[in-house]
Design a protein around this nucleic acid. Structure first.
Length: 570
RNA sequence: CGGGGCGUGGCGCAGUUUGGCUAGCGCGCCUGCCUUGGGAGCAGGAGGCCGGAGGUUCAAAUCCUCUCGCCCCGACCA
């Protein structure tokens, strides 16, 4: 490719739309342009990188027996009604109608469509296991798209679906995918850490997310400093605590105090001169429509996922102010456990708390010295709060540390959720009809590209790993008007192409500084500079982008040198 | 959806508070000269319904109303 022809307009200045490095650099290096919020055009260089990542994914999916298919983007509503997700998915789903008024959506994910495909074709255990995957655009009308490719509304995703006859088969599919993912991210030059996670709307119990630790990450990963435990903060387990008589304190007298204008923990602790951890927050929720209360220590946050799982209810939402008033007799901010007539569930952190400050269930009043058992009882203690950095590890005696993470992939054991709902069954050897046991395994392809940049850039631009670089080499004659340089550059360009190297020749009539800057910005792993001085010595200069290392190489050894560097880099 | 910010040539911005000449600057782009080891220099040039619609006014980028789009924080989310 000739640089003069390459449609990759580089920008000297960063467009105002970008906030994080990967987004800024993709715009500046001419990889990407925005079309609408969360929707992007890939320009030639950006597409080449995307295709490289896809290529690695294909190889690893094929290696574990995956077969590629291409599933439709436009999907009929009926299928989604069958699983109930037409309504469950809510506003996040792009919906459309055909001319006859028939409803469709732009696929946000493909469980329904792939299960429907398989249900009509798979009849027998003899056809299993089956692993189908696709790489395809997906559509989610995200509440808040951001950070370029990091969270888009249209995005490229690989997903594989596995179909097995039993749990054992699913387990193998799961771990095959898990290990394939480790290889994929490593080959992309990424360190992606598998962490325990929540399965969210997809469903299923066993799941890992692959996280790239980076400041731009949207998730908080908690990992143990001494053992290998790592989990998404929304999933990270707390440690169960028992009531310990040794920690008991003298029970002081329960006292009602006026707390004008103090409804938040911050205000109350300041007003009453107590620490937040000596207060108890009483949060009123509607669990399947019925009011319940969660008691959380003042300095902690409730984890709604844990609470919902613990209660085993289908819906859980914060109660509205009317319900709170009806339940507690007070406006929001003054609820407390004493005298409350709804089920109370407390986080473990409350177990050994004495003489706490709680709401009085009375406007502008709180109670001090509230105590468990004497003043209120709870239905149960549970791990209900958001785990935080500094908390003890649930697996060992270590401590959890926090880091931001970019979720580049996730593997799930789905079980029979979709196969049951959609009637995807097969016959076992003994003739019994059984739902297929499914797993699903996603990788955000565009997001992976963004993650690679987040971890590989410097003040001059992107530093591509060899394996996914848009081109391996750029050949830069210092002056294209110098005939000797132009000819030497052209000759090397031809030779590299013949050797199978992906190469760009910068044939522009620009000053060298401009060409160097663009080469660094785009991030070609190798640059060959051809100047009159080195030519006179029968040499060319080979520069490694990542290290800035320069090698003066005899002209007839340049191709071999480059082939060696490429090989080492992959 | 709540809070905040921003829309002025391709990109980055000034001008808006206090309405007034022909709407500016830097970069990029085109032509010529010159230059060629880290985003050169000189000269000439093209390119803007100031996001859109209404309104106020002798006069609107500037004031008012409505609207569309974009960014950030939050709620939310494979």
């Amino acid at each position: 490719m000739l640089m003069s022809q390459l449609y990759s307009p580089t920008l000297r200045e960063t467009p105002a739309e970008a906030e994080i490095q990967s987004h800024k650099l993709m715009l500046r290096a001419g990889l990407l342009r925005r079309s609408a919020t969360g929707i992007y055009t890939y320009l030639p260089l950006g597409l080449r990188v995307l295709r490289k990542v896809e290529g690695i994914i294909r190889e690893e999916m094929d290696a574990i027996g995956g077969q590629e298919v291409l599933l439709p983007i436009v999907q009929p509503a009926e299928l989604w009604h069958e699983t109930g997700r037409w309504s469950d998915y809510g506003a996040e789903m792009f919906r459309l109608q055909d001319r006859n008024g028939r409803q469709f959506c732009l696929g946000p994910t493909h469980e329904e469509i792939v299960t429907a495909l398989v249900r009509s074709e798979v009849r027998s255990y003899r056809q299993l296991p089956l692993r189908l995957y696709q790489i395809q655009n997906k559509y989610r009308d995200e509440i808040r798209p951001r950070f370029g490719l990091m969270r888009g509304r249209e995005f490229v995703m690989k997903d594989m679906y596995s179909f097995d006859r039993d749990e054992e088969g699913l387990d193998k599919s799961y771990w095959d995918a898990y290990h394939a993912y480790e290889r994929i991210f490593t080959r992309c030059g990424l360190e992606a850490r598998p962490v325990e996670a929540d399965s969210g709307a997809i469903g299923g119990d066993v799941t890992h997310e692959f996280m790239v630790l980076a400041d731009a990450g949207e998730d908080l990963v908690l990992h143990c400093t001494t053992c290998s435990y790592a989990a998404n903060s929304e999933r990270a387990e707390g440690v169960s605590v028992k009531r310990d008589p040794a920690l008991a304190q003298e029970l002081k007298e329960l006292t009602e105090v006026a707390t004008p204008n103090a409804s938040t923990i911050e205000q109350i602790s300041a007003f009453l001169q107590v620490r937040p951890q000596d207060c108890i927050k009483t949060l009123i929720y509607l669990a399947d429509g019925k009011p319940v209360a969660a008691l959380i220590r003042g300095d902690h946050e409730l984890n709604e996922i844990k609470f919902q799982k613990f209660l085993g209810v289908a819906t859980l939402e914060l109660a509205d102010s009317i319900t709170i008033y009806e339940t507690t007799g007070a406006p929001v901010g003054f609820a407390g456990p004493v005298g409350l007539k709804i089920p109370l569930y407390a986080d473990y952190a409350i177990v050994n708390l004495y003489n706490a400050v709680v709401g009085a269930n009375k406007d502008e009043h709180h109670l001090t010295n509230a105590n468990l058992e004497r003043d209120f009882q709870v239905e149960a203690f549970a791990d209900l709060r958001e785990t935080q950095p500094g908390d003890p590890c649930p697996r060992c005696s270590g401590t959890l540390e926090g880091a931001r993470g970019i979720e580049v992939g996730q593997v799930f054991k789905l079980g029979t959720k979709y196969s049951s709902a959609l009637g995807a069954t097969f016959l076992q050897e003994d003739g019994t009809e059984t739902p297929l046991i499914m797993g699903c395994y996603g990788i955000g392809v565009g997001r992976t590209v963004a993650a690679v940049i987040e971890k590989n850039y410097d003040e001059d631009g992107i530093i591509w790993p060899m394996s996914i670089a848009p081109y391996h080499v750029i050949v830069v004659p210092v002056s294209i008007k110098d005939q000797a340089q132009a000819e030497a550059a052209e000759k090397l360009y031809q030779e590299l192409q013949a050797a199978g190297v992906e190469v760009v020749l910068d044939d522009r009539n620009e000053r060298p500084g401009v060409k160097f800057k663009d080469a660094d910005l785009i991030g070609f792993p190798i640059r060959v500079t051809i100047g009159s001085k080195s030519l006179e010595h029968g040499q060319m200069e080979v520069t490694i982008r990542r290290t800035k290392e320069k090698l003066n190489v005899p002209i007839d050894e340049v191709v071999a040198t480059i082939l060696g560097i490429i090989k080492d880099g992959e």
